[in-house]
Design a protein around this nucleic acid. Structure first.
Lengths: 205, 205
DNA sequence: GTCTATATGTGGATAGAC
DNA sequence: GTCTATCCACATATAGAC
């Protein structure tokens, strides 16, 4: 079962997340294709298990970073770690943060893990005074952009990952004053957020 | 032929880029599936035509923006336009800027259009003094992150697109001094880029 | 739990008449 | 250029013996 998931990640890495076939997967673990149905009742169930495992891996990776100390250091370490984890396993990043598998939605249980992962990030930011939704959204966009560009345009390289520190510096400089109104909002007050709180990175339609 | 491409975009929008089937596509334009082979010699050729058309649309959209004037205005207008074009047609953004179709690489001719699009952006940035590769990379990451988050976590909404102006302000504030050494590089000189110039947003492996 | 055998569906692509 | 007919590969999923 562990081996099945491990093989699934291998396949996803080689042929893309959607490119996993139960035949290939069965071959990897020396089973016949129908035997997989003893472990997963459908292919989506396999994705769901991968989703849950992927969330746990990200959660561990980020949780292993310090919470206290210099704001810049805390945020940078989280960012570096998150980017590294995403880039080292593109399929995982794709499964967790994009919407590429038609029809797949994580189960409630798996989704709960994703929420914990997201809250972990929110907590880190809050611990350095970045408590607003808008600040969190800017942060996730920053990180997501680095990961997206790295994976799409320089897979295996470091062209964008090496920008993490500077991007975080830029972000923290911009949010100097931590949590209070920042320059941009002072400039255009109407831009402040009317939206309802969104608990997790996967709301939407 | 125009109608075929239009129908292809429709399908891509509804079922995902990879979800286009030649059967469905033929139905949309009242043809039989094999008849499409009079227009495209393969499915990849269809994607290639879509790629070229998508590039042209982006190019037009960005080209229609002013080049001269206030730096903030020029960069913001380009960013807004780019983000709007990406978000309004997710399939196009996916085809042009991600690597999701297994085995698909644009033809040389289509790729040339992509280069022009990229150079258009580079020119705009250069016109306000942002001439370094590193600055361009940060800019593309910024924009890509907004688009990625918007599409993945709030499709149809404006949760991240509304951050464009603030993100650009943050970016330009950080790069105050236009083209000269910025704060982060002054801080860690070793971080400056040893890499060779990369001409276009799709190098990599 | 694992197997063989098979159902059932969907792709892209080709042959050849008109 | 468009059609009918068909090929062939591959997918997920199920039935039922062991």
């Amino acid at each position: 079962m562990e081996r099945i998931l491990a093989a699934a990640w291998e396949l996803a890495d080689e042929q893309g997340l959607a490119g996993i076939s139960l035949r290939d997967l069965a071959d990897r673990v020396d089973l016949r294709q129908p035997s997989l149905y003893s472990y997963f009742e459908s292919k989506h169930a396999l994705y769901d298990a991968m989703f849950a495992q992927g969330c746990e891996q990200m959660l561990e990776g980020i949780h292993a970073r310090p919470v206290n100390g210099d704001a810049r250091r805390v945020v940078k370490e989280m960012a570096r770690r998150f980017v590294a984890l995403s880039v080292e396993n593109p399929a995982r990043a794709q499964l967790l943060f994009q919407r590429t598998i038609p029809g797949f939605e994580p189960s409630a249980a798996s989704y709960a893990i994703a929420q914990r992962m997201f809250e972990e990030g929110r907590t880190r930011l809050a611990s350095v005074g970045l408590t607003k939704d808008r600040q969190m959204d800017m942060y996730t966009a920053l990180i997501a952009g680095i990961v997206a560009q790295q994976l799409a345009n320089d897979p295996g390289g470091t062209r964008w990952t090496r920008l993490v520190d500077e991007m975080v510096d830029m972000y923290l400089d911009h949010n100097r004053g931590n949590g209070s109104r920042n320059e941009a909002e002072a400039r255009s007050p109407k831009a402040s957020r009317p939206r309802a709180e969104r608990p997790i990175e996967r709301g939407g339609k």
